[in-house]
């Protein structure tokens, strides 16, 4: 399943062959508040990597910095270096719009546009190129099939996306992100607003999608991380000695099986066994 090697560099960071992302000493601050710091990790291609940890540990912040969604928040700044393949993601010459076309995102709450199902999928391809109507039809069907939603909606593509159930809306959002042919899909707690059945469907979908896409998922659900991911990063919140500043830190990054059975750091063990967080 994991054709990638698991060498470790001098700092003990797990290294992969041709990783999608390489984070070196990454920190993210909002104005003068340091949200998360000292993150060193690599994210392998065509696999699912999970970020877990208690609230406020910076896992979502790191996820959002992987496609420059943080750029949209005034005062947010990424320090250190995030490489996307060979390129520096935050190079002044790099375009955030181009970055986000290649690195899609699915959010915590399903957020379909108040448009038809068809138009939701077609929006991305339309802004990124000038597809013909027939090309669009093909993209819409392919994306909906990939997101396991086609059979449920094929007869009502012109209905409002808001008429779908929460789970369907979230799969629509996944289909929408697939429609622009990204390489990576970032998922920020994609199941936290869904019931268990809808959650199971999304998890199946993630396992399905990792054949073609690199997936990074933030989740509060330990079992979910164990079920869908091959690698897991565990973050905690560290409080400074004065007790007035909380900063997220990466504790450990390893294969999911090791993280859940035999983690190196006692904090990881405490968290995954439910003694903390």
């Amino acid at each position: 399943m994991t054709a990638t090697s698991t060498e470790r560099n001098a700092q003990g960071v797990m290294e992969f062959i041709d990783p999608v992302f390489t984070l070196s000493d990454v920190a993210v601050s909002y104005s003068d508040f340091l949200a998360v710091s000292n993150v060193n990790l690599q994210i392998p291609s065509m696999d699912v990597t999970a970020f877990i940890g208690p609230s406020g540990c910076g896992k979502s912040t790191i996820l959002r910095s992987l496609n420059r969604t943080n750029d949209l928040i005034p005062g947010a700044k990424v320090h250190g270096k995030i490489s996307y393949h060979e390129a520096d993601l935050y190079d002044p010459k790099a375009s955030a719009v181009e970055v986000r076309r290649r690195i899609g995102m699915v959010f915590q709450k399903p957020n379909p546009f108040p448009k038809s199902i068809y138009e939701n999928i077609a929006f991305g391809p339309k802004v990124n190129g000038r597809p013909s109507k027939s090309e669009l039809d093909v993209i819409v069907e392919k994306s909906l099939r990939s997101a396991a939603l086609w059979d449920e909606v094929k007869d009502r593509l012109n209905d409002s996306a808001l008429s779908l159930s929460g789970g369907q809306q979230q799969r629509l959002c996944i289909a929408r992100s697939l429609a622009v042919d990204p390489e990576v899909i970032l998922m920020d707690e994609p199941c936290s607003a869904l019931d268990p059945i809808a959650t199971a469907r999304i998890e199946d979908l993630m396992i399905e999608l990792k054949r073609d896409y690199t997936i990074v998922i933030v989740t509060h659900n330990m079992q979910q991380a164990a079920r869908v991911s091959s690698y897991t990063a565990f973050f905690v919140t560290e409080v400074n000695p004065l007790g007035d500043r909380r900063t997220g830190k990466l504790v450990e990054f390893d294969s999911t099986s090791k993280m859940f059975s035999n983690p190196t750091d006692p904090r990881t063990e405490a968290y995954v066994t439910g003694k903390m967080g």
Binding site: T69, V97, V127
Partner: peptide, 17 residues
Amino acid sequence: PRAMREAGFALGATRRE
């Protein structure tokens, strides 16, 4: 909602779009 804007940006739309 901000989520609408973020969804658009995540698809590679520009600020104008």
